[in-house]
Nucleic acid binder design. Structure first.
Length: 270
DNA sequence: CTGGTCACCTGGAAGC
DNA sequence: TGCTTCCAGGTGACCA
């Protein structure tokens, strides 16, 4: 499920409930995620106080001052807060237990990741090679134009390359290109400066609007079933194959790129 | 280096 | 109803 907005909404929803609290117990029920959850994790976490929760790309970093828990939700992961004693359900793989609440990780497809590090997390192999944050001030059209200069692949899969920029997954790649009026089939290095400016703005605004939409229901998101809250923003083209483009009415087209579905308006996007 | 394909895993929807 | 097939919001290993 999660692209950058969903991860950020989770972070914002969890932080006020967990910051400054001490871990009473942690439990690993299923160790075999994408990377094996270290068996000693409960022992390492017990007694530590959660200082902060940061986000890097689609990763959450739980800062315990002298160690960091790095978490990725994969395709199907979600975090929720449940009352202590709540029986785990199928696919509830990990608990981080505090005195008054339990943060529970559910991930049916088990593409998620949960690792511990003693070193600065930005040096961890999972995070060290990540690209620029699209919501940071340094990300703009000029940066994008430079970064894509040597990329002759279609722009859509290039936008999804986490080594270039983080957080733009399959949904927001399609949506951002639509809002910028750029065809997903266009070679990344054949987009003008001016259109890179438009694209950078579209990426930032698409992500930002989605965070804002999810953020308004953050409490529901973490406290209820954990699934729905942040997907209220309707998409213009994503998952709308054959439906009318909101701007011109042309049927939205679906194309396969690098194994992923791309949705776009062949009339508005050139 | 770059770009495309595939595997990892489960579950829901669609097709027969 | 029940079986089969396809698809899903991520990532990195592997190959040409």
């Amino acid at each position: 499920m999660p692209e950058l907005p969903e991860v950020e909404v989770s972070r914002q929803g969890l932080l006020p409930h967990l910051r400054g609290k001490r871990v009473l117990a942690a439990a690993v029920r299923t160790a075999r995620l994408r990377h094996e959850i270290p068996p000693e994790l409960p022992r390492l976490l017990s007694g530590l106080t959660l200082q902060d929760i940061q986000r890097r790309g689609k990763y959450l970093v739980f800062d315990f001052g002298r160690g960091w828990l790095i978490l990725h939700l994969g395709m199907s992961g979600s975090l929720r807060l449940v009352a202590p004693g709540t029986p785990p359900q199928k696919h509830d793989h990990f608990d981080l237990g505090f005195a008054d609440t339990v943060m529970r990780l559910r991930d049916p497809r088990r593409f998620g990741t949960l690792v511990w590090t003693d070193e600065r997390p930005e040096h961890h192999p999972l995070l060290a090679a990540l690209g620029i944050e699209p919501l940071s001030p340094a990300f703009n059209g000029q940066w994008l134009h430079d970064a894509m200069r040597k990329r002759s692949a279609p722009v859509k899969p290039v936008l999804m390359d986490g080594h270039l920029l983080v957080g733009v997954g399959n949904i927001y790649a399609s949506e951002s290109l639509y809002h910028a009026g750029i065809s997903p089939l266009r070679a990344a290095n054949r987009i003008s400066h001016g259109r890179c400016d438009l694209l950078a703005v579209a990426i930032r605004e698409t992500l930002g609007a989605s965070i804002a939409a999810g953020g308004s229901s953050v409490r529901d998101y973490v406290h209820s079933d954990g699934g729905a809250g942040c997907f209220q923003l309707s998409c213009a083209v994503y998952d709308r194959d054959g439906q009318a483009c909101p701007a011109c009415g042309t049927p939205v087209r679906i194309t396969r790129q690098a194994g992923r579905s791309t949705y776009w308006c062949p009339s508005c996007q050139r």
